[in-house]
Design a protein around this nucleic acid. Sequence first.
DNA 1: TTAATATATCGCCTATTAACAATACATGAG
DNA 2: CTCATGTATTGTTAATAGGCGATATATTAA
Lengths: 108, 108
Amino acid sequence: MRLRKEPDTMQEEDILLIARVSDALAHPARIKIFRFIMNANRDRKKICNKDVVEAFDYSQATISQHIKKLVTSGLLEVQKSDRFSYYYANLGVLMKYLDATKKFPPTV
Amino acid sequence: MRLRKEPDTMQEEDILLIARVSDALAHPARIKIFRFIMNANRDRKKICNKDVVEAFDYSQATISQHIKKLVTSGLLEVQKSDRFSYYYANLGVLMKYLDATKKFPPTV
DNA sequence: TTAATATATCGCCTATTAACAATACATGAG
DNA sequence: CTCATGTATTGTTAATAGGCGATATATTAA
C-alpha cells in the first residue's frame, strides 16, 4: 500500500473531530439516513422528518433521535420552516472529517 | 468542493464496514492508541499491552478494553508470544475503511 | 516449585444508547 | 378558535459503554 510522505500532522483537533463524527456514523441507520438526505439535497429535494420516517423502517421517535445525533455531530443542519424541520447535509464537516482521516496512514 | 463523478457505489457491505470501524474510532483514546501502535509498527517496534498502559493515563483494565474493541473492529491484530500480547495495525482494514468513506460525497 | 510478571476478565458503578409508545409542543389549516 | 399535523421530548426497558480495582490465568524467571 501507499504511505503518506508528508510529516505526521494529525492534531488533537483532528482526533476530536474524527471521534465526534465517527460516533455519529457508528450505526448503519445513521449512515443511511445521512446519505439519504445528502443525495436528496443533490437533487434539490427538501427533506423533512416525515420523509425520513417514510423511507426507513423505524418509528418517528427513533428517526428523530438518530437525526439529532447527526445534527450534534455537525453532519446535518436543521432549518425550521412552516411546521416542518428541513435537514441539510453539511458537506464542509464531511470533507473535514475525510481530510482528517487521510492523516491516518503512517508517514514513511 | 469537489464532487465525485463516478456512480454511487456505496453498498451495504461498505455501510457495515464504516459502522464497525467508526464505532471503534468513536473514542479519542482509541484513535490515539491505534495511531500509537501503527506508528510504532512503522518504526519496527513491537508493542505490547504494557507499553500502551505506560504511554497513556488509563488503567491496565481500561486499556485492555479499548484494545479489545479495536481488535474486534479489525483495525488491530494480536499475536501472543512469550508472555506478551503484541499488537499490530491492520492497514488493509484501515484502507478499506478509507476507501469506503470516499464514496460518501454525492455524485454529480 | 515458587515467585514475579503480563494480560484478560469479572464485578461494580454510572452513564449512555437504542428502540418504542405516549405525550407535549408547535404551527398551519379550516 | 379549534383541529389536525409534524416534530421533539419524556418515560420505560434492555443493552452497551466506560472507568476502575480486584482477580484469574498463563508464562517466564529464579
